[in-house]
Design a protein around this nucleic acid. Structure first.
Length: 522
DNA sequence: AACTACTTCAACCGCACGTAC
DNA sequence: CGTACGTGCGGTTGAAGTAGT
C-alpha cells in the first residue's frame, strides 16, 4: 500500500467497486489517501458537529474534503471522536483484552465495546504486538493462571456433577458451551502437566481437524493458525486438500508420526496439517499441538525460534462462544436438500458452494458445515436413521446391559450439544457498546455463529467418537481422559471401544465420518 | 554518526451485510 | 427480486519511530 494520492478511474464502474472503497466515487476528482492533516481533521470535526455521524459519503459533498466516506468514518472513529482514550493501555485494560480475546477471538469491534474510549484498531494493534512480543519471549499468549483457573474449575465442576450422580455420562455433552469450552481448553493445560496428555490433545485435535480438513469443502474451517481464507484463495491450487504449501513446508510429512495414532488418523483422514508437527523438533513429551479454536500450541508456548512459524498466522481465540440469537440461528437453517432419506450423501454430492456461501456463517468455518450439522440434527429429530449411522453403529461393540450403544451416545451427544447451544444463544443478551447503545448487529457479528471450533460442538458431533476410539490405543490416554472427565466418563468411553475394532484400525472408510470420506489418500 | 532491524500504529483494502430503490 | 449504496468489520500494509550494533 502506498499513502499517495490516487486518481480515480473514470472508466471504473461503481458497481465493480462494490461501493465499498474510495477509488471510484468522485468522478474525475482525486481522493486523497494517506495521513490526515490537521486541516482535514478540522473540516471533518466541523462537519460531524453540524450533521452528526453517519452518511460519510456526504462529507465530501458538503465540505469539499477530498476523502472518501470510508476514510472519514475511520478517521472519526479512531481519532477524532470525543471520549477517545489516548496512550498506552493500562494494566487493567490489557488484562481485559486478554480475557476478552480468550472469549471472543479476533472480534475487535466487540472487544472495543468493552473498553470505553478504545477503538477496535487500537486493540487489534495491541494484540498483534502482544503476539509478536510473547512469541519472541517464548511466553504463552494466555497467562498460565488462566489455564489453571480453567482447569480447576472444569475439573471441579465435572467431578461434582458426574461423580455425584448429578448427570449421567452422556449428559456430559449437555454442559453449556462455556463449560465444555473450558473443558476443552483444559486439554491445553493438561498437555503440559499430565504425562502423555499431549497425545490426547494431539489425537483430539487431529481427529477434529482431520474431520474437517479432509475436504476442500471445509478448507475454510481450519484452525486459525492456518492462513486466512483470503490467503488460501490466493494459493488454492497448492493447498488442497487442507493447507497451503507454506504450511506444508512448515509441518513435515505424516511420516514423522511413527506408530502413533496421530499418524494413523491423519492418514485415514487424509490431512496433513496441523497434526504433522515435527515431533523430532519438539520432543514427544511436549509436542506442540494445535488445538482448533485455541490457535496455539497446546503447551501454550509458541516456539520463538522456529523459523517455520514465522510464516504462520497467529490468532488466538480460545474459548470462543457464539453470540447470536436463536432466531438468527434458526434462520440459517437451510439444508441444501429437503430429502432426508440420505441427506448426507446428497449434501456431499451437491455442487460445491460458492465462496460467499462458504464464508457466510462463521468466522472460522463455513456454511456447509453448519448445514451439515443442522441436517444431522434434523435427521435425529425425525428419528430417521440413515444408512451411514447404521453402519457406524454396527461397528460398535454390542453394549452390555445398562451401557449405551455408541450410536445412542452419538445421537444424544449431538442433540444435547445442539440443545445447549440453542439455550446459550437464547440467553445471550444483546451487546452494547461503550456508549450504552446496542451494537448494530451486522456484518460477521450478526451471523449465526455456531462455532464449530467450540469443543462442545465438536465433541458432540458424530465424528469425535472415532477419535475416542483412537484414544484408547494410545498409552496414558485413559489416565488423561480420566483426569479430564473423571474416571467414570473416561472409563465409559474406553469401554465404548472395547471389542476389537476400536481405534484406528476401525477407522476405515466405511465407518469414517462422512466428512472424512470425502477425500481419500491416493 | 550511520546503518540496520525491529516495532508501532494509522490507514487502506476487500468483504459482507442491511437498506433503499 | 435484483442492484446500488452506505456502513462496519477484520486483515494487511507501510511510513515513522526506536533500539541495537
Amino acid at each position: 500500500m502506498s499513502y499517495t494520492s490516487t486518481e480515480s478511474d473514470p472508466n471504473e464502474s461503481p458497481a465493480a467497486d462494490n461501493g465499498s472503497d474510495c477509488r471510484s466515487r468522485w468522478e474525475g476528482n482525486a481522493l486523497k489517501k494517506g495521513p490526515w492533516s490537521s486541516a482535514e481533521d478540522d473540516i471533518l470535526v466541523d462537519y460531524v458537529k453540524k450533521h452528526g455521524e453517519g452518511n460519510w459519503n456526504a462529507v465530501q459533498k458538503h465540505t469539499g474534503l477530498s476523502r472518501c466516506g470510508k476514510s472519514c468514518r475511520l478517521r472519526w472513529a479512531n481519532h477524532l471522536r470525543p471520549n477517545l482514550k489516548k496512550g498506552a493501555f493500562s494494566q487493567e485494560e490489557e488484562q481485559l483484552i486478554v480475557e476478552l480475546h480468550a472469549k471472543m477471538g479476533n472480534r475487535w469491534a466487540r472487544m472495543a465495546a468493552h473498553l470505553p474510549g478504545r477503538t477496535d484498531n487500537e486493540i487489534k494493534n495491541y494484540w498483534n504486538t502482544r503476539i509478536k512480543r510473547r512469541q519472541r519471549a517464548g511466553l504463552p499468549l494466555y497467562p498460565p493462571e488462566m489455564h489453571l483457573e480453567v482447569l480447576e474449575w472444569s475439573q471441579e465442576y465435572t467431578k461434582s456433577r458426574v461423580l455425584g450422580g448429578d448427570i449421567r455420562h452422556q449428559d456430559f455433552w449437555k454442559l453449556g458451551s462455556c463449560e465444555s469450552n473450558l473443558f476443552f481448553d483444559s486439554l491445553n493445560f493438561v498437555n503440559h502437566t499430565v504425562p502423555g496428555a499431549s497425545d490426547l490433545a494431539d489425537v483430539a485435535a487431529c481427529n477434529i481437524l482431520g474431520s474437517f480438513g479432509s475436504s476442500p469443502r471445509y478448507e475454510n474451517f481450519m484452525p486459525p493458525l492456518m492462513p486466512s481464507s483470503k490467503r488460501l484463495r490466493e494459493s488454492e491450487s497448492s493447498l488442497y486438500p487442507v493447507c497451503s504449501s507454506t504450511i506444508k513446508q512448515e509441518f513435515p510429512s505424516p511420516e514423522h508420526f511413527q506408530n502413533t495414532a496421530t499418524q494413523q488418523i491423519s492418514k485415514a483422514c487424509s490431512f496433513s496439517v496441523p497434526c504433522d508437527v515435527d515431533h523430532s523438533r519438539y520432543g514427544n513429551q511436549h509436542s506442540p499441538v494445535l488445538i482448533p479454536g485455541s490457535h496455539t500450541f497446546t503447551d501454550g508456548i509458541v516456539p520463538a525460534s522456529s523459523p517455520s512459524l514465522g510464516a504462520v498466522k497467529l490468532e488466538l481465540p480460545s474459548f470462543q462462544y457464539p453470540e447470536a440469537t436463536f432466531d438468527q440461528w434458526k434462520k440459517s437453517v437451510s439444508p441444501p436438500h429437503s430429502d432426508l432419506l440420505d441427506p448426507f450423501d446428497a449434501y456431499i454430492q451437491s455442487p460445491p458452494p460458492t465462496r460467499r456461501e462458504e464464508s457466510d456463517c462463521f468466522p472460522n468455518c463455513d456454511t456447509g458445515l453448519l448445514d451439515m450439522l443442522l441436517l444431522e440434527a434434523k435427521i435425529r429429530n425425525n428419528s430417521t436413521k440413515n444408512s451411514l449411522y447404521k453402519s457406524c453403529a454396527s461397528t460398535t461393540p454390542s453394549a452390555d446391559a445398562g451401557e449405551l450403544s455408541l450410536s445412542q451416545i452419538k445421537s444424544e451427544k449431538f442433540d444435547h450439544s445442539l440443545e445447549s447451544f440453542l439455550h446459550s444463544e437464547i440467553s445471550l443478551s444483546k451487546q452494547h457498546n461503550a456508549d450504552g447503545l446496542p451494537l448494530r448487529q451486522r456484518g460477521k457479528e450478526r451471523k449465526p455463529v455456531l462455532d464449530i471450533t467450540r469443543p462442545d460442538v465438536l465433541l458432540a458431533s458424530s465424528w469425535i467418537d472415532h477419535g475416542l476410539g483412537i484414544v484408547k490405543e494410545t498409552g496414558n490416554m485413559s489416565d488423561a481422559l480420566a483426569a479430564l472427565l473423571g474416571d467414570d466418563i473416561g472409563n465409559d468411553y474406553m469401554n465404548l471401544n472395547i471389542g476389537g475394532s476400536s481405534g484406528v484400525g476401525s477407522c476405515s472408510w466405511s465407518n469414517m465420518p462422512p466428512v472424512c470420506q470425502m477425500t481419500e489418500l491416493p
